[in-house]
Amino acid sequence: MSKDTLLPGFPAPKEGRPYRPCVGIMVLNAQGLVWAGKRDDGAGASDYEYAWQMPQGGIDPSEDPRLAAFRELYEETSMRSVSYLAETDSWLTYDYPPEIVADTRKGKYCGQAQKWYALRFEGDEDEVNILQPPEGHKAEFCAWRWERAENLPGLIVPFKRDVYRQVVEAFAHLTA
């Protein structure tokens, strides 16, 4: 039995390959703006177009998705001063483009199935440390900013835009 079968409502494999179980996190500040990070290309910078995204990451075997959201957020941003606001009713999916399946995912997954969580940031911005993440984690972002939710789909790589539109709509009642 795979870990995805333990996740209620998890989508079925597509074309013989499963979706990678993941979480996505929309972090909102008191003004209803959303935290967005600029992906690090591995050299401490990001020279490619559409480099901005919200935190996301894989769910460990037998891990509760909500706990995975808090863990991933901490590993990527050092944020701990957050509280739970809401989550999507269902898993949102996107498929990897063929070049990503072949080059970076070794054909193991067809894409990602993500459970999205909205969290309220309640700390001081000094808490955010993307350049030196905690516990030896590799930096995934090289810059960050607060952004209006409706702008997010235009900042993310095109193959993730539909999911971002769904997330923005699902959490519209929480944003400015």
Rank of each mutant, 00 (worst) to 15 (best):
A143P: 07
R145W: 01
E87L: 02
Q56E: 11
W116V: 04
L7R: 09
Y48F: 14
N29V: 01
R39V: 10
L67N: 13
A69I: 02
M26R: 12
S90H: 08
Y48L: 13
A68D: 10
A149F: 05
R66S: 05
K115F: 09
P18E: 08
P134L: 10
E75A: 13
A86L: 03
P134R: 09
L6D: 12
G37K: 12
P18Y: 05
F10S: 01
P18S: 04
L7S: 11
F70N: 11
D60A: 15
V101I: 15
A69Y: 04
Y48M: 09
H137T: 06
S81R: 03
L92A: 08
R66A: 06
Q114Y: 00
A51Y: 09
S46T: 00
P13A: 12
L92G: 10
F171W: 10
V27L: 15
Y117G: 08
V34A: 15
L28D: 03
R66M: 08
V167F: 10
W91A: 04
K38E: 07
M1C: 00
E15V: 02
L7V: 03
Y164G: 00
D89P: 08
A113N: 11
M79V: 02
W91R: 05
Q53R: 15
A68K: 09
W91G: 06
S81M: 01
T5E: 13
H137L: 01
F141T: 03
G32R: 11
F171A: 11
I100N: 12
I25P: 05
G44W: 00
W35I: 01
S46Q: 02
R20T: 03
R148L: 12
W144H: 14
E87Q: 14
G58C: 10
G58Y: 06
A30S: 14
D162Q: 15
P98V: 02
G107Q: 08
L131Y: 06
E99Q: 07
T88K: 03
L152N: 03
K160T: 04
D47P: 00
G16M: 15
Y84M: 10
E122L: 12
A45T: 13
P97K: 03
V157Q: 13
